[in-house]
């Protein structure tokens, strides 16, 4: 049992590190991205990475209340990505 929970702690630490590294690399792409499509893509990936951070935080604390947070962040990320892409495409969002 101690081996399993120790492995679990190590896996959670590795996953946190991977998601944090992902956020940093996405931020680099957001800074250097030559086109605005790349910047929208980097922002979308950052939202998805933060979703993973919330999920792993819920696993670590062993509570279920992060489900609604994750769903709300996912919906907001999708809507903001579509709005940004339409803004690039047309110049305005609601015509």
């Amino acid at each position: 049992m101690t081996t399993a929970s120790g492995l679990m702690e190590i896996a959670i630490a590795i996953t946190f590190a991977a998601l944090a590294l992902g956020q940093i690399l996405c931020m680099a792409r957001l800074a250097i991205g030559p086109t605005s499509g790349d910047r929208v893509l980097a922002l979308d990936t950052m939202v998805i990475n933060s979703l993973g951070l919330i999920v792993v935080l819920g696993i670590r604390q062993g509570v279920q209340i992060y489900f609604e947070v994750t769903l709300l962040v996912a919906m907001l990320g999708f809507v903001s990505t579509v709005a940004l892409a339409r803004f690039i495409l047309r110049g305005d969002i609601i015509e």
Partner: peptide
């Protein structure tokens, strides 16, 4: 733990590709 490790590998691969 195995699912978490597989997920983190895919996250790293995707972001490096980005």
């Amino acid at each position: 733990a195995i699912f978490l490790l597989i997920g983190s590998v895919f996250v790293i691969v995707g972001v490096i590709g980005l």
